[in-house]
Nucleic acid binder design. Structure first.
Lengths: 197, 197
DNA sequence: AGTTATAACCTAGGGCTCCTAGGCGAGCAA
DNA sequence: TTGCTCGCCTAGGAGCCCTAGGTTATAACT
């Protein structure tokens, strides 16, 4: 009998590929195992269970997405950096819908495993890096980071859930949203300026 | 044998309550049935299956959320209406996490059933109503609607997934986001004003 | 009131899921 | 060559979704 040479990483990668091709809900132990030429029970030597596997896919996706964003934004600043950041985010979600969906799941990840993953921490650093050019200081910086992440994630989630009708290309709306975010960051009100219009 | 008096509506409501209490993934035919004092096979007279049931929960949630927003925004205009709209959205998501999660699922709803549900159409009308005060015209209106929905949904999704650290109260960031959206809508650039900063 | 028809709820069971327990043998170390 | 480790196996339990077919409560009609 030839051994398959499984590792936690290979199992996670197979699950991620399956998620992108067939949807996250189609990721079952049996299907991942069959893709690796193995029985489902064999996976439990490498992965604690289905929930653990999903968590690993989520961590993988976070790392990959962060890497793409880092590559896209390196050497850029200002609106250039903002657009590159946002486009890389959206592009990753489009290219890897299953992996991206895994990141949306309420977190039930092995803390020890999560601590070793560089993705989330690095993602925060990158976001702060983009905002550095806009001259914001805490706590405005935190608020701005949250606004950016909310807008990017919300747009991508609605778009891929079919939440936008077909009357206008999402690309145009995306560009306008980025214009709006750039303007918002440029003129961020550093103090409350009550405008009860 | 006493009959339980089930209807599709009662089954959907039980599923929605279970989703809010235990999480959407805990909504199984068996658990919904037991909550109604019935065997799982009995539900299939009223509901086509689990996917259909989830779709009905999603439709219920959309209708309820729209209703709350309508109540909150009636008689308001401008930023007042924007804030009421957004707060009602976020409040619904907080109060009914399971129902809200159901609305995020990639749509696989019986089209005939969906056509009878007033929620989605009414939601679009309400959003356009809020924007009326800002004097936008198509296609800017569509772009603005998408920006609002993206920001609201993205913020709520990240917030309830634990995506924000604990270093600053989300409420503050939410208020700043609404300030930013109000400013964006007030000064919406009706033509492209390329600012390659 | 008695009869009939509808349909609400049941039991039984198939095929799928995740997961555990225990066994065999492949390939490495001595 | 011998022996050990551990990678992958088979077997099986519990629970999932769903279908088929049987009972029987209830509503409708004479």
């Amino acid at each position: 009998m030839v051994r398959a040479g499984l590792t936690a990483e290979r199992v996670t990668l197979a699950a991620a590929e399956l998620a992108d091709e067939a949807g996250l809900d189609q990721v079952t132990m049996a299907r991942v195992a069959s893709r690796l030429g193995v029985k489902d029970a064999s996976l439990y030597s490498h992965v604690r269970g289905l929930e653990d596997l999903r968590g690993r896919v989520a961590l993988l996706a976070a790392d990959e997405k962060t890497l793409r964003i880092a590559e896209a934004t390196v050497g850029r600043a200002g609106k250039d950096a903002l657009v590159a950041f946002a486009d890389a985010w959206r592009d990753y979600a489009h290219r890897h819908p299953g992996r991206y969906a895994a990141t949306q799941i309420r977190i039930t990840i092995d803390p020890e495993l999560a601590a070793r993953a560089p993705g989330p921490r690095r993602a925060v650093e990158l976001t702060y890096g983009v905002l550095r050019g806009y001259g914001l200081a805490e706590p405005d910086l935190t608020d701005a980071v949250r606004l950016l992440r909310s807008t990017f994630h919300g747009f991508v989630a609605l778009e891929s859930a079919g939440g936008f009708g077909h009357e206008r290309a999402p690309q145009r709306s995306w560009e306008r949203a980025l214009d709006a975010l750039h303007a918002t960051l440029t003129h961020w009100p550093s103090a409350r300026d009550g405008d009860p219009s």
